[in-house]
């Protein structure tokens, strides 16, 4: 009996052939860390890790013909835990549960003195001097556009609740527009699109279904485009196009940024699309 027990014990240990044992430091905090560290390090029949949360020391037992210390420590670092060989990627560390965010050894960053000679970053804000008489008109529709952009951002995040709330704001803004404050051109377009703008906005507000909201956002954007074309803006607006939206028929939207953030697919196809026109 005793022999069988003994045998099974040795069998347990003998799971890893020609086992080599080493002791290394791995940074971490708590029992949860221990779980993650050991799980990341263990490979059946190849490597076993036993970490002690008090001493921060880990016992590595492994088969040197199949693996090495570096491989084990790299796996552990990729799970978020630094050792003296590897530093975990920052984003992985940041994603560790709060209780596991142990104190990291600070790296000494070198401050690079560099002359920035970047010509491509012309700031568009430098064209702010709009004439004073147009300012009033700008303001009149600006609230509308701003709310439209907020709605668009909600759709980029695929957040139906937020989109509905933003649509409500947009509807308020649309209703508050004083037509006598608009320029002639704006007025003409406004009369043409006002009804549809309100129609689509109401529908976006009514539902929390992002798919349905996007259907309306498509026509809303087309009308908004007509309006913004004739309305003078302080900063440029980008008219963007995704050929895949709307079941492959394509759809447009307006954005304040040149970089594409697609409101029709959200994170699925965030960068699908391109700027087709810059409205200044």
């Amino acid at each position: 009996m005793a022999i069988t027990v003994l045998l099974s014990f040795t069998a347990c240990n003998a799971q890893i052939k020609n086992a080599k044992t080493e002791s290394v430091k791995i940074y971490g905090n708590c029992g949860m860390c221990e779980n993650t560290i050991e799980k990341a390090g263990n490979v059946k029949k190849v490597a076993q890790v036993d970490w002690n949360k008090d001493t921060k020391m880990a016992t590595l037992t492994y088969d040197p013909s199949k693996t090495n210390q570096d491989e084990i420590l790299k796996r552990i670092a990729l799970a978020g835990y630094d050792s003296d060989q590897f530093l975990a990627p920052d984003d992985v560390y940041d994603n560790l549960p709060g209780c596991c965010q142990y104190e990291r050894v600070k790296k000494t960053e070198v401050i690079l003195t560099e002359v920035v000679t970047d010509h491509s970053m012309h700031n568009h804000d430098s064209t702010t001097d709009a004439k004073s008489e147009t300012k009033q008109e700008v303001k009149e529709l600006k609230v509308v556009f701003d709310n439209y952009f907020a709605l668009k951002d909600a759709l980029v995040k695929s957040d139906g609740n937020l989109a509905s709330a933003k649509a409500k704001d947009l509807l308020n803004a649309l209703n508050a527009v004083q037509m006598n404050q608009l320029s002639n051109e704006e007025h003409t377009v406004w009369m043409k699109v006002m009804k549809d703008l309100k129609f689509d906005t109401e529908h976006i507000e009514e539902t929390k279904d992002v798919g349905h909201q996007r259907d309306h956002f498509n026509t809303l954007s087309d009308n908004m485009y007509q309006l913004i074309k004739v309305s003078k803006q302080v900063t440029p607006t980008y008219y963007q196009h995704c050929p895949m939206a709307n079941d492959g028929k394509g759809a447009n939207w307006l954005s304040k940024e040149n970089g594409v953030k697609n409101p029709y697919y959200g994170s699925q196809m965030l960068t699908c699309g391109k700027t087709v026109e810059t409205i200044e």
């Binding site: 670092a77 990729l78 003296d84 060989q85 590897f86 530093l87 990627p89 992985v92 790296k107």
Partner: peptide, 8 residues
């Protein structure tokens, strides 16, 4: 020195 990893 110590190896700073990047997320796979």
């Amino acid at each position: 020195g110590i190896k700073q990893l990047v997320s796979p």
